[in-house]
Nucleic acid binder design. Structure first.
Length: 483
RNA sequence: GGCGCCAUGGUGUAAUUGGUUAACACGCCGCCCUCUCAAGGCGGAGAGUUCGGGUUCGAUCCCCGAUGGCGCUACCA
């Protein structure tokens, strides 16, 4: 018997491709990945596609896409359970031969009927184990006659417990476990069999998965024992809840990881946010929450995982996003912004240098990648619109357009336009007209950017350049239209 | 219903394995800065740790019970 719990850890993420990678799955994957990278272990990706009805190749691709987006790479796999069927069938036979499992000829319909009857009678709807005591020749006869049969695990007496890395000792009475199906009558394994067969075959040392699997664990431990395999360490991670504290689902809005990409979230922000949902790096690091990928890897440990479920907080995610966008290198941010432009049909007509300069200026006040394709449009293209609210707020005065046009002439007459000279010209003009500079500044902002909110006006002017400043100020009476 | 798990401000988490004015972050409120909005700086409100017992000189922390939430209860995973 080998000691699988020693040596370099081997962990896995084993999603079932019946949907896109959702945030709960993403966090489970992240924790496994963090643990593997922290310990120098191996991170395996295994696709649990034994439910042919609900699995699809598109979903597999969706899951891989989600993992790549948050930056999780795997060392082995992806393995597909649908291609490993012989292993499960052999394992089931082995269990039958050793007396730990048996053939069950009860049909699905029959079982359902009995379950309903039991429920009506107030009895627990567990399988009555009637096929457990079938005679050998009876079994042989039925099989020879071609009767379909499933393989069930023969749950022994007693109780089953383990020492969970997160929850501590957990124990179940075997009497509460039914003789669950290992192999369906069509020869396809159920989840209970395939996980165990694979986890043993792949020599996994730690099983880090959602807490929704706690009650499945005793069924799996029983199989390890029956198969004479060493137990891995189980670490169950609490679930992620929606704001109403029910399990996160489509009702709560975005549930797939890619949806957050589409919402303009930067992957590093999402990963940092996810890592801190249900895990903390300990008291010595409680003063901050921004951790680079390397720090996360260095700090990660199973005993930092909390036991209670966590509520997904969009506001906090938004905060991480602003922090990461601000810290992002502009050249690295550009490709992400370009995706947004593409999606919003924005076609920048600036040089690379101008674009990067604009990003430098704008990223400190961006909250989302989408900002670059919406409220920041005017910095990258000349096709933008005035925000009606901005006009109402800062351009309502009927005399303003005329004054701004006149101001535009002053800029046209200037020999150069720098941040400093832009300010000089405007303040001199304001003094000359005997008005507050703020009125002109705010009005100009709307004329130049279409928005009530922007970086410092004079920095914007310097960025836009003399020609555009003159152009946009002189056209203030006829706001540009997009399209 | 049965079985299991969990429970610290609105949210995420801390609190040297019993001794703290219960800490940090997000969010919220106010002030400063100021050409707008963020950011930033400063300050503030917000939990006496779900509730009730018990152990103890002393419980967020240990024990029991209740309540609530969540999970599982398939020839789904």
């Amino acid at each position: 018997m080998t000691d699988t719990a020693s040596g370099a850890p081997r962990v896995r993420f084993a999603p079932s491709p019946t949907g896109y990678l959702h945030v709960g799955g993403a966090r489970t994957a992240l924790f496994n990945w963090l643990f593997a990278r922290n310990t120098g272990g191996t991170f395996i990706l295994r696709i649990e596609d034994t439910d042919f009805e609900r699995s699809s190749e598109a979903m597999v691709e969706g899951i891989l896409e989600g993992m790549r987006w948050i930056g999780l790479d795997w060392d082995e796999g992806p393995f597909f359970q649908s291609q490993r069927l012989p292993l499960y069938q052999e394992t089931a036979e082995k269990l039958v031969a050793a007396g730990h499992a048996y053939y069950c000829f009860c049909s699905k319909e029959e079982l359902e009927r009995r379950r309903a009857a039991a429920a009506a009678a107030g009895r627990p709807p567990m399988y009555d184990r009637r096929c457990r005591t079938l005679e050998l020749d009876d079994i042989a006869e039925r099989r020879a006659a071609g009767h379909a049969c499933a393989v069930r695990f023969a749950v022994p007496e007693g109780s089953t417990f383990w020492d969970d890395a997160v929850f501590g000792r957990v124990e179940f009475a075997n009497a509460d476990l039914e003789d669950f199906v290992l192999l369906r009558s069509d020869g396809i394994p159920t989840y209970h069999l395939s996980v165990v067969a694979d986890d043993i075959d792949m020599r996994l040392t730690h099983i880090i998965r959602g807490a929704d699997h706690i009650s499945n664990t005793p069924k799996q431990i029983l199989q390890y024992r029956a198969l004479g395999a060493d137990l891995p360490i189980f670490a169950h991670v609490p679930l992620i809840l929606g704001p109403d504290k029910t399990r996160l689902s489509k009702r709560h809005g975005a549930t797939s990881v890619i949806a957050y990409k589409d919402m303009g979230i930067v992957p590093e922000a999402f990963r940092n946010f996810l890592a801190l949902l249900g895990w903390s790096p300990g008291p010595q690091h409680k003063d901050r929450e921004l951790f680079s990928s390397d720090e996360l890897i260095r700090l990660f440990s199973l005993d930092g995982i909390s036991k209670s479920n966590a509520v997904f907080d969009n506001d906090k995610l938004a905060w991480f996003n602003t922090e990461y966008i601000r810290a992002y290198d502009s050249a690295k941010l550009l490709p992400l912004i370009e995706e947004e432009w593409k999606a919003a049909d924005v076609k920048p007509n600036r040089s690379q240098g101008e674009i990067l300069a604009a990003i430098d200026l704008l990223k400190p006040r961006a909250r989302n990648l989408k900002d670059f394709a919406t409220s920041f449009r005017a910095y990258f293209t000349d096709r933008f619109e005035y925000d009606p609210a901005a006009v109402t707020r800062f351009l309502a005065d009927a005399t303003l357009p005329g004054l701004l046009q006149e101001l535009g002439q002053r800029y046209a007459a200037a020999t150069t336009l720098t941040e400093a000279s832009a300010e000089e010209v405007l303040r001199a003009f304001a003094a000359e007209k005997g008005m507050k500079a703020g009125l002109l500044i705010n009005g100009s902002r709307v004329a130049l950017t279409g928005q009530a909110v922007a970086p410092s006006l004079f920095a914007v002017m310097a960025l836009l350049g003399q020609e555009r400043v003159v152009q946009r100020l002189s056209e203030v009476a006829q706001p540009p239209k997009a399209g």
